[in-house]
Design a protein around this nucleic acid. Structure first.
Lengths: 238, 238
DNA sequence: CGATATATTGAGAAAAGTCAAAATAAGTGG
DNA sequence: CCACTTATTTTGACTTTTCTCAATATATCG
């Protein structure tokens, strides 16, 4: 049996999918993929689209195909904490609960592959590998959340901003070597501040300090190049 | 068939276990419980026992039967962030990885029910219900971690301390009504500070402020009674 | 009861926040 | 493409919060 015969069983949508192997779909065999593919729709959202608000019900889950998604929590008085940034090929949504307890918004232009939650439910019941993959992603998310708790609770403003740049560079350019990374921030100073537990002014001042120290270069406020990765790591206390 | 016949299949150890129904064992049928029970040992640890350090390998997982377990992360320079407090009947350990990336220590006298990690691995492969329960616990832990990120990033020292007391009261007296809760702090001021991203002095000052405001009563530094639960919630910004 | 660890309190220093203004970037219609 | 408007970012001066260091008080343990 030739490979392309196998491949022909895979939905066209999935064959071209950048996220297929890394995301939860990597745990599915062609038959399962076909079943899921029939219920799936691919959608584009511009930056700053609200995808879900706390208390809102949804019957859909998604895979992130590209772009950055911002997950945050709100206090009654309006204070906001960004609790996670999600990148392709992350799974987005709650496999068991219909009601969201977080605020989910696109931070850049985003493409999602969405499918009904009940599909996920029935497929996890059949495929231990799928549930395993979902389980592992949540463990990874928990670990990241804990790392961020360390940043939020113990680090100084300068260390927080440096840590943020390192984290973002790692997600946007996972394969590249350390030196001279260059990327778009996507998030506004306000978003970064809400992620780091700082104010926009403090974020701006710390970015300026890193720039003046020759560690990074900033172009038009949103585009960052890391000139001295080692210096940045030192500034992040890592 | 009488109930006690069913019950006789359950290991003696498990029959008397306070955590059986709430913890992961609640997902197991008597046969599975018996299999796991044979590999299980119940152990007591005094307060401040180090259970696992970052990088250390372990081939065991546990259920917490009672007591409080402190999970923390360390920075190279010694700064510490407590990233979670775990209570009975939580599952303790990583179902997939042998190497720990956190520092785990008992915060009070603790009783654990430990079993080999490979047992968990083989049992999750067979029982979707067990994997599901583990998966749900991690989702709950992630949600708690996110709530704590909000506390760490956005709240003032006063709000952090009030939030901590509410959280602890909820875990130590889950069934009781709100009014006049009374409990032991278990953690030192240092531990609380490392959990809240504050210093011991600030924690102490904020506790004193709550005491002087008539919201709580403190006895011998470690025993707290909540006099005005509503005032405490208001102080926590929740 | 004394010794040691833990917690509280006070005074001054440092970090980050607030408010206001200026500078830069982005969006819009001619 | 440019001028104009609006939003975002940066910078400065000052305030507040929390930290640091030191002293005192209180608990815990043998």
């Amino acid at each position: 049996m030739r490979l392309e015969i196998d491949n022909s069983d895979i939905p066209v949508l999935c064959r071209a999918c950048e996220a297929r192997h890394g995301g939860i779909c990597g745990a599915l065999d062609p038959a399962e993929l076909l079943r899921l593919g029939k219920m799936t729709s691919r959608q584009r959202y511009p930056a700053r689209t609200i995808l879900l608000t706390p208390g809102e019900h949804t019957e859909y889950c998604s895979n992130i195909l590209n772009g950055v998604v911002k997950v945050s929590k709100l206090l009654p008085d309006g204070r906001q904490q960004v609790v996670e940034l999600q990148f392709a090929p992350d799974f987005l949504g709650h496999p068991f609960a219909a009601e969201s307890n977080v605020f989910i918004e696109t931070a850049s232009a985003v493409e999602l592959c969405s499918f009904p939650r009940h599909m996920l439910k029935s497929m996890t019941a059949e495929s231990a590998a799928l549930q395993n993959r979902l389980h592992r992603q949540v463990l990874r998310q928990l670990d990241q959340a804990r790392d961020w708790m360390m940043t939020l609770g113990q680090k100084t403003a300068a260390e927080k901003v440096a840590s943020f740049l390192i984290m973002l560079a790692g997600h946007l350019h996972p394969s590249e070597a350390d030196r001279s990374k260059s990327f778009d921030l996507t998030l506004s100073r306000m978003d970064i501040a809400d992620f780091l537990g700082l104010t926009t002014e403090t974020v701006s001042r710390q970015l300026t300090a890193l720039r003046k120290a020759g560690v990074i270069h900033i172009d038009k406020a949103r585009h960052v190049s890391i000139i001295n990765p080692q210096g940045l790591r030192a500034a992040a206390a890592q």
